[in-house]
Design a protein around this nucleic acid. Structure first.
Length: 180
DNA sequence: CCCTGATTCGC
DNA sequence: GCGAATCAGG
């Protein structure tokens, strides 16, 4: 692929907006992130424009005071941090989201399905191993993809793969059969 | 292991 | 000039 003026301009714009080299490569198409980085250097476009990236800490909601614990759930003390990238105006903001404390994880006896926490990725941020389950209205701008880790070779995470490939009614039947 | 940018060097 | 390979880091 050739570095036309068009593409160079787009590169400059996206780089100054704080997109990562791989994200820019994805948008340009036909080039690797190394190509992008190399080009950035040759253009003397130095250093990441920090673009005022803010760090926000978000606490996961605890179980409401009256909520019942059900046999299918187990409570676990966890501290999890994950970095999400989200569009905010012209910039992509990196946010550290910390989820800690009492987190309930569903342990379904027969299926072992865990409800995913959506990473809210944009189309260009999907990789081979992010869940491509769409969430929301494609016409609206809060549209995004699940983005959780997808199971080996699957386009979806464990949870959404089950939704995608199995009728709900049949799942109970199959589970019952397996238990026997 | 996933990702990031930086640098080198054969082409 | 280009970018894959590599390095260094989170």
């Amino acid at each position: 692929m050739n570095w036309t003026d068009e593409r160079v301009e787009k590169l400059k714009r996206l780089w100054s907006e704080g997109l990562s080299a791989s994200q820019i490569a994805a948008q340009l198409g036909g080039v690797s992130r190394n190509a992008v980085i190399g080009k950035v250097h040759r253009l003397n476009l130095p250093g990441r424009a920090k673009a005022g990236g803010s760090t926000t800490t978000v606490r996961a909601a605890k179980r409401p005071a009256g909520a019942q614990r059900t046999p299918n759930y187990t409570a676990r003390n966890t501290t999890t941090t994950r970095t999400v990238t989200r569009a905010a105006g012209a910039n992509l903001l990196k946010e550290e989201i910390e989820i800690d404390g009492l987190e309930e994880i569903q342990i379904s006896r027969s299926t072992n399905v865990v409800l995913p926490i959506s990473r809210k990725l944009a189309l260009t941020e999907l990789t081979e191993r992010t869940c491509k389950w769409p969430i929301g209205d494609p016409m609206k701008d809060d549209f995004h993809f699940c983005g959780c880790e997808s199971a080996d070779t699957s386009p979806y995470c464990n949870y959404h793969a089950k939704l995608a490939y199995q009728p709900v009614g049949e799942r109970r039947r199959a589970a019952a059969a397996a238990a026997r």
